[in-house]
Amino acid sequence: MDKFNVSVSPHIKSNVTTQRIMIDVLIGLAPVTVAAIVLFGVRALAIICVCLACSVLCEFVSQKIMKRTVTVSDCSAAVTGLLLALSLPANAPLWQAAIGCVFAIVVVKQLFGGLGQNFANPAVTARVMMLISFSNSLAVATNTVFFDSVTSATPLAMINDPNNGAVPDYLQLFLGNHAGTIGETCSLALLIGGIYLLVRKVITWHEPVVFIGTVMLLSIAFGRDPLTEVLTGGVLIAAFFMATDYVTTPAQTYGRMLFGFGCGLITVIIRVYGNYPEGVSFAILLMNILTPYIDNWTKKKVIGGAAK
């Protein structure tokens, strides 16, 4: 008689896999990727291709060197690469984009133990590293192809200093026809992607809603226009795609809300008081570091457990 497989229950599993989740995130990013290519042209396409290829290659090579199981097929490296590409301006040199990917995958992700072990979001950390290291090329925002001039100030820089020009109207902001990184300008595409992730239950509403809500409320408190604040800069892409990264954000409801609040708070403070016109990346990175503590503070009470 054949021996059967013996394992601990349960013996059926849901069809949700890590790979399925990552593919859903890629699908969620698809509208904004298309928008980026439409708005910023061939340059955007080149950056996206370089980042995707470089991230996946880095994952493969580093896992080979470190003698780990190669897990390129879970698509997490592709997500990191695409997110990083979308948070770069269209005129960023391709070699700098490639270095960003190496940093994201090798240093931030694999050196800490690979998927699930990194404490900070690889794409966000790489972008912050690039913002500091390559400030000449990264700080200059590129205009969309529908403008005459190649570069201009971002709407956020315009808000901070009216000499930079007039802030575009809501429709232009919503459709993304203004200067910025290739993936942050088209709010419409980001909302479509975000709603897709919510419908697929890949993310919960807590982080995006609290993050965006905090930015709006605090903007009102500081006498700034809340809608413009949300539609410009990286708030939407961060709220839907970076603040919802499982690995580097809290795992439970209240923790997620606290995380979203913290991101919103730091974003607005940097926007109002900081040297940089935009603070979303720093906000996410700082909150990533707090995640283990937030997880501890916001642990749900075990039902029927000991009284706390």
Binding site: I21, D74, G116, V247, K299, I303
Partner: peptide, 20 residues
């Protein structure tokens, strides 16, 4: 495969235990 800290295990736990 590696735990990705997604929180599904604790979200579905009837007793709010945190398996991860």
């Amino acid at each position: 495969t590696n735990c990705i800290h997604c929180g599904r295990c604790t979200a579905v736990c009837p007793l709010h235990i945190t398996p991860f």
